[in-house]
Amino acid sequence: MKLSKVAEILNASVVCGKENLSREVTHAFASDLMSDVLTIDSRNLLLLTGLTNVQTIRTSEMADIQNIVIVRNKKVTPEMLEIAKENDIVILECNYSLFRACGKLFTAGLEPVY
């Protein structure tokens, strides 16, 4: 699924990486616990989280995660944006709860990691 499609399904705004919306994701993982995010296979992965601090982006950088959806109407900080830009990470912001966002993407065909 292209990130542009993810943004459409979640009615999300693109806050970083507009030029990379043709990127494909096949799997998604949802967590506010970065310790868990650091243990998963991250190929073609979309991360959904409500955790908005700089460690969300650092974790993604270390785990080779390039695509993030911020849920629950949380807003990314300028520090997060700076590191995301540096690492070619796409960030979408959406108003939906984590459950609702996951449900919509699962129904549309995104696979779970496990």
């Binding site: 650091l38 991250s42 601090n53 700089v54 460690q55 650092r58 974790t59 950088e61 270390m62 785990a63 080779d64 520090e79 590191i83």
Partner: peptide, 30 residues
């Protein structure tokens, strides 16, 4: 915590410059 991960980030860039395979880089930097 505002600077946590900066050292790992810098060293990841070193590994990329050394052409270490991405899967190995991931193990090292995690």
């Amino acid at each position: 915590f505002s600077t946590a991960g900066q050292a790992s980030s810098r060293f990841k860039k070193v590994l990329q410059q050394l052409n270490v395979p991405p899967q190995t880089i991931k193990r090292i930097v995690i």
